[in-house]
Write a protein that binds this DNA or RNA. Structure first.
Lengths: 214, 214
DNA sequence: CCTCGATTCTTACGCTGTAAGAGACGAGGA
DNA sequence: TCCTCGTCTCTTACAGCGTAAGAATCGAGG
């Protein structure tokens, strides 16, 4: 047999299928993704895809893995402390989610237990130099915070981009402070940075206090 | 006409429909909810439900509203500062989400712009006595944190309850620290309290600092 | 009693995920 | 050269979905 032992007539691959799925979701949203349409995008019938993916759920998991695997490659820079590294991971995760907002509802709904995501956690625990259970709490808090925050920002239907956009018709008499807040509101990036810094600060300050008191 | 002007043959009401939907989702999960099955639960054909709910999406929104409306009734206690009040709202929200975990994927995916949720934000901005835009950032950070955290805890498929459960077969050689963390891990309530306190502390400390520097 | 509006049911359409099996292809051995 | 076999692809089919359109039924008010 030759080297390329898997060369079907359409040159399909599990990787190419996932690629196409991600592109499709980026363009049309997760709700529009069906096996038939994805097959059409690849010039193939729906059932053909089942040769590369056991079912649609597995395809969803593969999409999530694409985003998370980018985090596994984040190495600690020299002299960097756990807090800085965790901040960089959080920002990268957010970047990935924003680059593929269609995957956001999936990432929020399905557990991230791929080897890559476990690797990220393991690295975090090593860098933090804290009791592992406490470090896991921190990582968990940061990752879930990023997910929740990004979800509120971009995880909506493709139409309305943000809460602010969908509230242009707000009743300023009933909610005067909210109306003003939306007028003066910061950009999403700034709001994320503000909240992330607050969380990290709080996490590490809280931990220091509990260490001192024990 | 008499007082009860709407008494159909099955005694149906929009409220009763939403009740049944919530009960069904609590029991079988959101994925299992279909108009036909919900109708059967109420002794009625599927199309009958469309007399009380314009479509399935509106039914979803009604489910979310059920959870959020519990927050609108949280009054500030005498002498309570914004930080304490916000903590209580967060804990109540989490309690609601945990009581109806089937609704969690909805709450995460759909924007919360019902009057009740807007009222919660407005009250928060009044109590915080900060620039409204800054206050909104705080509320946003806390609510999205609660959502993300609870999602990671209970927003999974009905089968696997938590990350810990679904990782019982973890490879302890590749991920030694993670394995130990899971062994020593705190309960979800404690982890939530730890992270919430950290976030609130960080938020208000960060805000004090930025006020002092301006 | 009769009418009318509110409520419910029937039927139908196009879509979904995917089970089952038949068909086509191309590389390896005879 | 041909034949075979494993890999890949397609065809067909089924049960279920949301919901549009309209017919049927009911109970209350005139």
């Amino acid at each position: 047999m030759s080297d390329r032992r898997a060369r079907p007539r359409a040159g399909l691959t599990r990787e190419r299928v996932v690629d196409a799925a991600l592109a499709f979701v980026d363009k049309h949203g997760i709700a529009a993704l069906s096996m038939r349409k994805l097959g059409a995008e690849l010039g193939v019938e729906a059932m053909t895809l089942y040769h590369y993916v056991p079912n649609k759920e597995a395809l969803f998991d593969a999409l999530i893995d694409r985003l998370v695997s980018a985090l596994a490659g984040i190495e600690p820079e020299s002299g960097e402390r756990g807090q800085q590294w965790l901040g960089r991971v959080a920002r990268t995760y957010r970047g990935q989610l924003l680059a593929h907002p269609g995957v956001l509802p999936l990432a929020a709904t399905r557990p991230a237990v791929s080897p890559d995501s476990l690797q990220v956690i393991e690295t975090a625990l090593r860098l933090l130099e804290l009791p592992p259970a406490r470090g896991l709490d921190m990582v968990n808090a940061v990752m879930t915070f990023v997910l929740g925050h990004t979800l509120a920002e971009a995880g909506r239907a493709p139409g309305a981009q943000s809460d602010v956009d969908s509230l242009g018709h707000l009743d300023a008499d009933r909610f005067p402070l909210l109306a003003q807040a939306l007028r003066d509101g910061a950009r999403h990036d700034e709001r994320f940075e503000f909240a992330l810094e607050a969380l990290l600060t709080g996490l590490f300050a809280t931990d220091l206090r509990s260490e001192a008191s024990e």
